[in-house]
Design a protein around this nucleic acid. Structure first.
Length: 928
RNA sequence: GCGGAUGUGGCGGAAUUGGUAGACGCGCUAGACUUAGGAUCUAGUGCCGCAAGGCGUGGGGGUUCGAGUCCCUUCAUCCGCACCA
């Protein structure tokens, strides 16, 4: 019989591995192209058809670029640290590295079967000490760096120290978690070492700080917000409490503006860039100082609307605000304390669900509005967030809807200070809502009366600055990244403690390998698992940090390591970095839109600052591949029986819908015998059929084991081959779309592969090509195909390439074309999509080299010329008939012929056309 | 609530700058060859209609000789953020 895909695919996969066909090496004679996939976490359940979608697309593009003469870097590796392996270790005692290694081997096998052109010599694995040495190394550089606002980059702390020794910190403008304490050189020099370290840690790019975390005592660990449901852990359902804890942070906020600006030049989906912009959350406004009436403290607020300062009728502090306790008057102490403890104990969920519920308490204190010396009351309310801005606001109820609601609820004064064009100001008492829009003129606002909002903002900011009562300010929502986890399975920190202060270990001590522990659980006293390790101390006996790094540590710089993965002297060589530079095409899921993609950009910018990375952005073009959804099948059990009713009859009964394994269903018809064998309790199941069949219902859902709708690639490859799988995954639709998996459609692509094979063979399946020159029709078919394939690949429209290739094969089959030159071209066009069959055909055509490094054909416009055009003739825009005319006919000749045509005459019925529009080579439209 | 995306046959989707809507494939219908087929081949297949013809890209409106494509408006679904000062 025809094409033997099993044998052929095996043969070429072996060939590629043996000959290292896809090995990439620096070659200055060729332009480079770096194609990267987001590397996978090797989970225990292996790959399903959704996982390789992006890898197939990137592989096609990588292979295409090789054909176009590029030196392509296309590596793959494993994001090998992760919770599931640790969880499994806790349950079974199996070391996570054992589990992870096993899963990696399985993944590798599955990936190899799909025929990817990865350079496996560059494989990295984040949990491999040879790799994580550089993750730890980068952390050390972060620890030893500070952010200089004057040069707008990260610099070595050593430079900072010598400046302290000379001039103290008065000339330093740093991005730091330090107040405005000024010290002199002699202050610095006389400081005890411990105190110096306490000062320095506030400047470091990697620093320790207290923060409120979700602490789960039962699990002995800190949980992310999404791991907490209703105040209980999602896993295990243990109670979770808020707790202050020391954590490592990375000073990503120093890069807020650069991370924002960098987006402009990136070829990323607009929606993704927008998500990052929102995440960074830049807002322009002003910081304004309010002095408290009684205690004289300064309360700093951030506002985007300094123009409305005259309309500020009260202030609100977050329950966590540090001055709250101090300013609260004795008469209000109890009330405020009660409110604060209530607010602090509210779970995340309560706060979100309770949006409509307005709460707050008066502190008894007053502050002075800096522009008009008005005394305004200070309240505490949890609608003001501690983590945003300064945790305090000036409330302008006339022009902010939340302040408005609050003022209404507590009967606080509302003052209008902005008025719309043509509006007669009326007492805000009668308003239904505040007027938040940023257009209009100022009223009731002293020296800025009559100004437009925009001008008023500038004027008042200037005045505040002159009088030292505030300054123009930009605020970001982005927060520093918490970088420590109380887990076992992660990179250890190369940090030890002396006198309670953290010190960096030396580079020569790296990698600091994960120690063995007796159990993968926290200690009885709630310390992280690493505290169980014996002798977790430096040579000098100092204890080593017991936290480990989070998942994003290892994935933040892996694309750089791929450039030079075997280097044991450096993260990567300058030569490799300057050749490969950054990723030209990055493909992965949109679940990493704000996490991985923002941390990576930060990591890269830091390495750029310290002179390591030569590009400011890691990923030039990015595509989010869509998810492949499952298509679940359902049967309908009549309640309380073991009887199942077919889909269209189900409404006559009380039924319960249940998932059925998609392997038992063909074209929505249930295989009743297989169903009975599926589970023991179904052995005696009865059925109510329609037209002799049991028809199943279906729905598009997430692909998951529990829904019995998982499609495994291995089975499909066994049945149809990898080439067919690759083509079909692309044929499913645009790469970016979410689309349901439908196994039925794969048959069409399988037929295409068989038809392709037949073009190169006679009826007896003997290889057959002729050396005759192709005729005009054959040339037209193949050149049209070259053109379309190239255009579509260049706009990453992988699905339309498949249909173009199908059309080409159909056309050539109809022409009974066996001409060598045409078929050689076709093999190259097909090779990036279906590499195995293409290699085989290429070899049959007499080539000894792999088709990988063939040359992508160039189409010749001359063969595409049409002698005549079939013009659609429309009347008032509706097409009525077509008319075949010579391609080079002039407009006036076309008009004459069209108007003389019998069918036109019939349509016009003797009337004169109002207008005749002729678009050469496109359309004729007659307006009647 | 804010931000983003998507709506085209029974299904996945095509239509690159406004120019024959539904390419390609699945499914379906009929037929051929077969002992048989879930193999292969041929023809058909947007909807309504016997036909002539009419209607069709979520709905409504507009610009245009001509709109899936441009503008306004509205609805639905999905995703992200969610008291952000």
């Amino acid at each position: 019989m025809g094409y033997n895909f099993v044998e052929t695919e095996n043969k070429w996969q072996k060939f590629w591995a043996k000959n290292k066909t896809f090995k990439a090496a620096i070659d200055h004679s060729k332009p480079k192209y770096y194609v990267l996939d987001m590397f996978p976490y090797p989970s225990g359940s292996g790959l399903h058809v959704g996982h390789p979608l992006g890898y197939i697309a990137s592989d096609i593009y990588a292979r295409y670029k090789r054909l176009k003469g590029f030196n392509v870097l296309h590596p793959m590796g494993f994001d090998a640290y992760g919770l599931p392996a640790e969880q499994y270790a806790i349950q079974t005692g199996t070391h996570p590295s054992v589990t992870t290694q096993k899963n990696i081997v399985r993944y590798r096998k599955q990936l190899d079967k799909i025929g990817f052109s990865f350079d496996w010599d560059r494989e990295v694995s984040t949990s491999d000490p040879f790799y994580y040495k550089w993750t730890q190394w980068t952390f050390l550089q972060l620890f030893r760096s500070w952010y200089n606002n004057k040069t707008n980059k990260a610099e070595p702390v050593t430079g900072l120290i010598s400046e302290f020794e000379k001039n103290g910190n008065q000339n330093i403008d740093a991005f730091c978690s330090f107040g405005d304490e000024i010290f002199t050189a002699s202050d610095w020099i006389t400081m005890p070492e411990k105190q110096q370290q306490e000062v320095l840690i506030n400047y470091r790019m990697a620093y320790l700080s207290e923060t409120m975390v979700n602490w789960c005592p039962a699990l002995g660990t800190v949980l992310a917000n999404d791991e907490v449901k209703d105040g209980y852990s999602e896993r295990g359902g243990h109670p979770v409490e808020k707790k202050m804890m020391k954590q490592w942070f990375l000073r990503i906020t120093a890069y807020s503006q650069r991370l924002l600006d960098g987006l402009e030049k990136l070829d990323w989906p607009e929606s993704l860039k927008e998500m990052q912009r929102n995440w960074i959350g830049r807002s322009e406004g002003a910081a304004v100082f309010f002095k408290t009436d009684a205690t004289g403290d300064t309360l700093e607020v951030f506002t985007t609307r300094p123009d409305t300062l005259f309309g500020a009728t009260f202030m609100v502090l977050a329950p966590e605000h540090e001055l709250l306790e101090k300013i609260t008057t004795s008469g209000h102490q109890k009330e405020v304390l009660d409110y604060v403890s209530w607010a602090k104990n509210r779970s995340e969920r309560d706060r979100i669900a309770d949006v409509k519920n307005i709460t707050g308490v008066f502190t008894g204190a007053y502050s002075i509005n800096p522009v008009n010396d008005q005394k305004i009351p200070i309240w505490v309310a949890d609608y003001v967030l501690a983590g945003y801005g300064t945790g305090a606001i000036m409330a302008v109820p006339g022009h902010d809807s939340r302040d408005f609601a609050f003022a209404r609820h507590f009967n606080l004064p509302i003052l209008q200070v902005v008025t719309r064009e043509d509006e007669v100001p009326e007492d805000p008492k009668h308003w239904d809502d505040s007027f938040d829009a940023k257009d209009g003129k100022m009223i009731n606002s002293g020296f800025i009366n009559g100004l437009e909002v925009k001008d008023a903002i500038m004027a008042i900011t200037k005045k505040l600055e002159e009088e030292g009562k505030g300054f123009g300010s930009i605020n970001y929502r982005l927060r520093d990244a918490i970088f420590s986890r109380q887990r076992y399975w992660g990179e250890p920190f190369p940090i030890y403690y002396k006198n309670g202060m953290p010190y960096p270990m030396s580079e020569s001590d790296l990698p600091l390998e994960l120690p063995e522990v007796d159990k993968y659980l926290p200690t009885e006293s709630g310390e992280p698992p690493l505290a169980r390790a014996k002798n977790w101390k430096t040579k000098d006996g100092y204890s080593i940090e017991t936290n480990t790094m989070p998942g994003f540590a290892g994935s933040s710089g892996y694309y750089l390591r791929y450039m030079d993965p075997t280097n044991d002297k450096a993260y990567f060589s300058k030569e490799a970095n300057e050749y490969w530079r950054n990723v030209d095409l990055y493909i992965g899921g949109d679940e990493h839109s704000v996490g991985h993609l923002i941390y990576s950009r930060f990591w890269n910018k830091f390495l750029y600052d310290i002179g390591l990375a030569c590009e400011g952005e890691p990923f030039r073009k990015l595509i989010n591949q869509g998810k492949i959804q499952g298509r679940s099948s359902f049967v309908y059990r009549i309640k309380g029986t073991n009887k199942f009713v077919s889909y269209n009859l189900r409404n006559s009964y009380e039924t319960a819908r249940q998932h059925v394994d998609i392997n038992l269903v063909d074209n929505d018809v249930l295989d009743i015998q297989a169903f009975r064998n599926w589970q023991p309790d179904l052995a005696d199941a009865e059925f109510i059929l329609e037209e002799g069949k049991y028809v199943c219902g279906w729905e598009i859902e997430k692909m998951s084991k529990s829904k019995h709708n998982v499609q495994n690639p291995d089975e499909l490859i066994k049945q149809y081959g990898a080439d067919t799988l690759r083509l079909y995954e692309m044929f499913l639709g645009p790469l970016e779309y979410h689309k349901p998996w439908d196994t039925k459609g794969i048959e069409g692509v399988f037929r295409f592969i068989k038809k392709l094979w037949k073009l190169y063979h006679d009826n007896q399946n003997r290889f057959y090509v002729s050396d005759d020159d192709p005729d005009e029709k054959e040339l037209k078919v193949i050149h049209r195909t070259i053109k379309r394939v190239e255009e579509d690949i260049n706009r990453f429209s992988f699905n339309t390439v498949v249909s173009t290739l199908m059309i080409c094969v159909n056309d050539l089959a109809e022409l009974k074309c066996h001409k060598r030159s045409v078929l050689e071209t076709l093999a190259v066009l097909v090779s990036s999509y279906a590499p195995h069959i293409a290699e085989e055909l290429w070899q049959l055509l007499g080539h000894n080299e792999s088709i990988t490094y063939a040359t992508f054909p160039v189409y010749n416009e001359q063969y595409l010329k049409e002698d005549s055009i079939k013009y659609p003739v429309s009347f008032n825009g509706k097409v009525r008939f077509t008319l075949e005319l010579p391609a080079d006919m002039t407009i006036s000749d076309i008009e004459k012929i069209v108007l003389a045509d019998k069918q036109t005459q019939k349509r016009l019925q003797g009337k004169e056309p109002r207008k005749v529009i002729i678009v050469p080579k496109r359309i004729i439209n007659i307006v009647v």
